[in-house]
Structure formats: C-alpha cells, structure tokens
Amino acid sequence: MGELGAAAPWLNDPAVQVGLAPFAVSLVLGLLVQVLGAARVMGLALGAGFLVAYVLFEGVPDFPPPAAKQKVFYLAAIGLGAGLVLDLLNRPAWVTRGAIVVFPLGCALWFAWRRLGGGADLMFLLTLAGFWAGAALFLNRLARLGEQEGLPGAGAVLIAAALGAAAVAMLGNSITLALLAGAVAAAAGGLTLWSYGPWVLKGQAGAFGATALLGGGGALVALAGVMALYVPQVSKTALALVILTSFAGPAARQFSLGSGPVARAGGPVVLGGLAAVPALAALGLAYLMQEL
C-alpha cells in the first residue's frame, strides 16, 4: 500500500481492501459496462474488482513473481484478459471449453515448475493432478451455470464457492489467501447485486461469459491452487468439497419455481442457498481436521 495507505489510512483496513473495495469496484464497473452497452463483458467488473483488491491488500507483485501467491495476481489478470478476448471475439463454445482445461493447467505448471525441476515427490504430483482436474471441473460447471442460469445465478454460486474456500484457508492458517478468496466473493457480490435487478425485471442481466469465468472463477481457482500445493494445513478434502458448489444447478432444477419475475427473483437465491451447503460442509470438515 505504501504511499496510498499513508495518504488515506482507512485504505490500510483489510475490510476495505478485500471487502468494500472489490464490491464497490465491481458494482460501479458493472453499471458502466451496462451503460456502455457491453453486456457480454460484464465479467470485466468481477475480475477488475479482484485485481483492485489484490493491489490494495498486497501491492503489485514483482515480475517475474517468485511466489505462487504473487503469481495469482498475474494469473487473474491473464484470465481476465483472455476472457475479454474470447467474449469480444464471440468465440465458439469449444474455445472456452478449451480455456477451461488450459487455464488451470497453466496455473498448475507455473505454481509447480520449480518443484518439478527439483524432483517433486509423489504426493505433490498427485495434489497437482488433483488440482488441475478439480479446477477444470469447477470452471466447466460454472460455465454451464452461467449459460443456463444467467449471471446472477452463476454469481451466487461463485460467492458461495469463494466464501467456502476462504473459510477453508482461514482454518488452514492462511489468512492472506482467505481474505483474497473473500475478495473474489465481494467482487462477485457487487456484480451479482447489480445484475439482479435487471434479471428479475427483464430476465436478462448481461452474460456470465468467459470474462467472468476466467477473470473471477480463474482467480478463485488460482487461489485454491496455492492453498492445495503450498499450505500443508489446508484440508485438501475440504477444498475438494467446495467444488460441489458448482453442482447447485442440477439440484436447483428439483425446485420448480416456474417463470416470471417472482421465479427469476428466487432462482439465484435458491442456487446460492444450495451452493452454500457444500461450502458449509467444507467449513465443517476443515474445522474438524484442524481439531484432530
């Protein structure tokens, strides 16, 4: 923070850095993007909100970044940029599906290249493979949610997943990663709140496209990778439970809400509530693992 923090001491408050700031940036940018008629890149607000929170909380990391936590900033920026390009170019769906596999693979290799070069043990390799598969699965499910349930629904699920990951990190003794995961939730909250009104009234609220998926979901995935690979006290099982938040879509279809504004108003709430179940289970498991 340095000079900025000295000029405005309230900016040194973590609640502002990873809570209020990403929420506000996402809300305001969401409004701007909507006004500018670029609804297909609404996710820009989400990714930008996270990046602002990272800079306020950790500063801009050196480049090349030596530590995995610092790489998260650049991975989130790359995810946001790649998502923007894909959305602006009206990419075919298979390109996004490819990015869903390639992005976590890139995260895994960048996080692990030093260990891989120095002779990584089997457990590390298994964790690495598990992270890749889990992250790709999560992003794939989140992309489907965005397509089927719209921006508010996918946003609500991302909030639940980010809060679940934050709780697991907090109980695993990594407060920084927990707060950064909280920043993803706050940024998703700003965008979701902004998009909720138009969604309820008109049934359209901008797209949860590749920008939101790789810029916001990608940031969360990268944070989860650091937790899984470099924080031994983070419960990997609890972290895996967080992936189940992205299966809220099929579960929500069991509750037939019909159509119309009331149904649309309830949809994201039901999705968020269902996604909160595995997030809370992850929290409980992480707590139990900590106590054992």
Binding site: A67, A68, G172, S174, V231, P232
Partner: peptide
C-alpha cells in the same frame, strides 16, 4: 503454523 504459511515464510514453497 501461521508464520510457516504463505502469509509469511511460505515454508512449503521456500
């Protein structure tokens, strides 16, 4: 345990 985490000395990575 907290000091060993990525918040501080990041012992698993470094």
């Amino acid at each position: 345990d907290h000091l060993r985490s990525p918040d501080f000395f990041n012992a698993a990575e470094f």
